[in-house]
């Protein structure tokens, strides 16, 4: 059997196609699943490169920098003591920013969902409006038929009881 999975990236569900027996309904199902998963990912939001890390990253030591670090090593506890308040403040700021970013991501997700909801509501309301119009027309036609039948009935009664 000749089959192929067509996809854009590794984390997207593939659209399976059996070329020996192409089934449009199945392909369309695959496409709909793919779109749904894309929408889900978009609403969660990608990992932003600008999100700060929880702490400073160690750098490779080399050359003069390495020598200086060795010379300063005995004073390290004192330096840490002096720098601690600044370091602590920096760490807290990073955490606050991180929390703010998370809140923003959630808000973005919420906005996306609300947007989708509004779109779907508009579609559904439009459908309902059309349905209501049709039903109103039907009712009016039935009322007219009923009225006509009533008149006819009265005329027939008059004829019968003459």
């Amino acid at each position: 059997m000749s089959q192929e999975n067509i996809k854009n990236s590794s984390d997207e569900p593939a659209v399976k196609i059996d070329y020996d027996n192409v089934d449009v309904a199945r392909i369309m199902d695959g496409i709909k699943k793919k779109i749904a998963s894309q929408a889900g990912r978009e609403s969660v939001g990608p990992n932003k490169p600008g999100v700060p890390d929880s702490g400073p990253q160690p750098e490779p030591r080399s050359g003069i920098k390495g020598i200086l670090v060795k010379i300063m090593a005995p004073f390290a506890p004192l330096i840490k003591l002096l720098v601690l308040p600044v370091y602590e403040e920096h760490r807290q700021t990073v955490m606050i920013l991180d929390h703010a970013n998370r809140r923003l991501a959630r808000a973005q997700e919420y906005i996306n969902l609300t947007h989708n909801l509004c779109h779907n509501l508009v579609v559904e309301i439009t459908k309902l409006k059309i349905e209501v119009d049709l039903l109103e027309t039907k009712v009016q036609i039935m009322e007219k038929d009923f009225e006509f039948l009533g008149k006819r009935e009265r005329v027939l009664e008059q004829e019968v009881f003459k």
């Binding site: 779109i35 894309q38 929408a39």
Partner: peptide, 16 residues
């Protein structure tokens, strides 16, 4: 989104 995906699928796959 369906237009984009169906058109992409068709253009990418001459066999399809």
């Amino acid at each position: 989104p369906e237009f984009r995906e169906t058109l992409t699928l068709l253009l990418r796959s001459p066999r399809l």
